[in-house]
């Protein structure tokens, strides 16, 4: 034990070790892992079916009042019936961009889950600080940037995985890809998710690294959660919202993420101009928040 270690190390050594340590906590704990898989099933199964908006317009739910029906011949009635039931696809298509509400919602759920997972994963840094692990790592030659990046990366990877699970679960529940879908679009979807998770987790880690109590990030999360989720197009299209809510939803990066993902997954034709705007907005959001997050965390670690 007399020789010291002076092996030349890359600037990023320890990045995978620290990231993997975070991920292991999750995938090596069977209960936690199974629960994280069950949760989206419940969401999609319960909310997706309870709010099954497309069924509102089905032919069977259209009953003509007797006095009205008497004025038409049976042939006219059946023509009217099929007209109204045809309205279903028309209204769904023009409102949600797809005839299947579960497809619409599943994409919203993917973004929503990514948001949730980044928030929760970021909380581990509070424990690392309280339990002395952070100080221990700070006394090793791991670079400060690597410490922050490992947190961001593990939260991002975990969120992306969760989002992928949602998509897989939505398939047997009736998820329908749009006509414009090609397997290549999946790459675009994950690029989108990667960007938004990167920005969000950087922000949360900058907040959490300063908290000595787990209650602080909890409060911040609860505050941000609701507006980020419901002032977005996750469950309902923005154009159906009142003007003031639209204003909020139009600057919400989650809306752009969801729109981008819907274009790539469920819409029958891709509006490339809008897709470019989506990517630009989410990309700028990620760049700004990652920079702010890393600078703030860095400052804290170098006090």
């Amino acid at each position: 034990m007399s020789t010291s270690n002076n092996n030349s190390k890359s600037k990023t050594h320890g990045l995978w070790a620290l990231t993997n340590r975070e991920l292991k906590k999750w995938y090596k704990a069977p209960v936690v892992f199974v629960l994280t898989l069950i949760q989206p099933v419940l969401w999609l199964g319960l909310l997706g079916n309870a709010l099954n908006i497309s069924s509102l317009f089905s032919a069977s739910s259209i009953q003509f009042p007797a006095e009205l029906a008497a004025q038409f011949t049976p042939a006219q009635l059946s023509a009217l019936g099929s007209f109204f039931s045809g309205l279903q696809n028309q209204i769904m298509g023009s409102t949600f961009g797809t005839t299947s509400y579960i497809s619409f919602m599943a994409v919203g759920m993917m973004a929503f889950t990514a948001l949730f997972t980044t928030m929760f994963s970021g909380m581990s840094v509070v424990w690392d600080r309280r339990l002395g692990f952070l100080n221990k790592v700070l006394s090793t030659p791991v670079s400060r940037a690597v410490i922050i990046l490992s947190k961001v990366l593990s939260a991002t990877l975990r969120s992306m995985f969760q989002a992928a699970v949602i998509l897989l679960i939505a398939l047997p529940l009736g998820f329908a890809f749009g006509a414009a879908f090609t397997p290549l679009n999946i790459l675009g979807v994950f690029a989108m998710l990667f960007l938004v998770c990167l920005g969000l987790s950087s922000l949360f880690i900058a907040i959490n690294i300063r908290s000595t109590r787990i209650e602080t990030p909890m409060a911040v999360m609860n505050l941000l959660n609701l507006p980020l989720t419901f002032a977005s197009s996750a469950f309902f299209p923005i154009k159906q919202m009142p003007a003031w809510l639209q204003a909020v939803a139009n600057v919400n990066p989650i809306s752009y993420t969801i729109d981008g993902m819907r274009q790539l997954l469920i819409f029958d034709s891709i509006d490339f101009a809008q897709l470019a705007v989506d990517f630009a907005f989410v990309g700028a959001f990620a760049a700004v928040l990652t920079t702010i997050g890393i600078v703030f965390s860095w400052r804290f670690l170098n006090k």
Binding site: G14, K25, F133, S139
Partner: peptide
């Protein structure tokens, strides 16, 4: 450094914990 707190990861084995520490030194 041997800190005051128990910093070893409870979900990992003793062996894995030492390997993790070694990774932090780029060994």
């Amino acid at each position: 450094v041997v800190p005051q707190e128990y910093t070893a990861d409870e979900d990992l084995t003793g062996y894995e914990n030492i390997l993790l520490c070694a990774d932090l030194y780029g060994i």
